[in-house]
């Protein structure tokens, strides 16, 4: 149930950032990891790293090396995520999933271009000031502007905004 994991992660990230948490963890899965990396590239997260059941030490985070993944420890692995705050407000206040396991929502390139420019497309509201979308494409999980740049459409995973 990869999509369900992403949906759960979206809710969890929104709750965590509204609760003003500094860092949080989500389930370790490839799909989650790719969405988180897309958000990290867009600047919504301060760091994304794999770790054990306990969070990495923030002081040595830049040199943190997660233990090698083995069949023995893979079940206890988590993805640790740093949340960002600016001017005492969370950078990522709204995180809403779009595609659900029951209803995948896709958008082709022209729809993505419209969404990017703030117009409605694919039954979605256009992006507002400071908003972003994560799109699952053939070229990987990308932020919407990356997808438009690489001229590829795909599955609308989630919508993130201030």
């Amino acid at each position: 149930m990869p999509i369900a994991n992403v949906v759960n992660m979206c809710s969890h990230l929104q709750n965590a950032s509204r609760a003003r948490l500094g860092l949080t963890s989500v389930q370790h899965s490839k799909y989650n990891l790719h969405v988180l990396l897309a958000l990290h590239r867009a600047g919504f997260l301060s760091f994304v790293t794999r770790g054990g059941p306990f969070p990495p030490d923030p002081a040595t985070l830049s040199t943190f090396e997660p233990e090698p993944l083995t069949t023995a420890n893979v079940a206890s692995q988590r993805l640790w995520v740093g949340l960002k705050y600016s001017d005492n407000q969370p950078v990522m206040r709204h995180v809403a999933s779009i595609t659900t396991p029951k209803r995948p929502i896709t958008a082709n390139l022209s729809a993505l271009e419209r969404l990017c420019r703030g117009f409605d497309a694919s039954r979605q509201r256009g992006l507002n000031l400071g908003e972003a979308m994560v799109v699952g494409t053939d070229l990987g999980t990308l932020e919407i502007r990356e997808a438009v740049e690489r001229k590829v459409g795909g599955l609308l995973l989630c919508r993130v905004g201030p």
Partner: peptide, 13 residues
């Protein structure tokens, strides 16, 4: 209304 510059600073852009 949000300040676009503030948002950009928050995201490091």
């Amino acid at each position: 209304q949000k300040d676009p510059n503030e948002l950009a600073i928050g995201r490091g852009k």
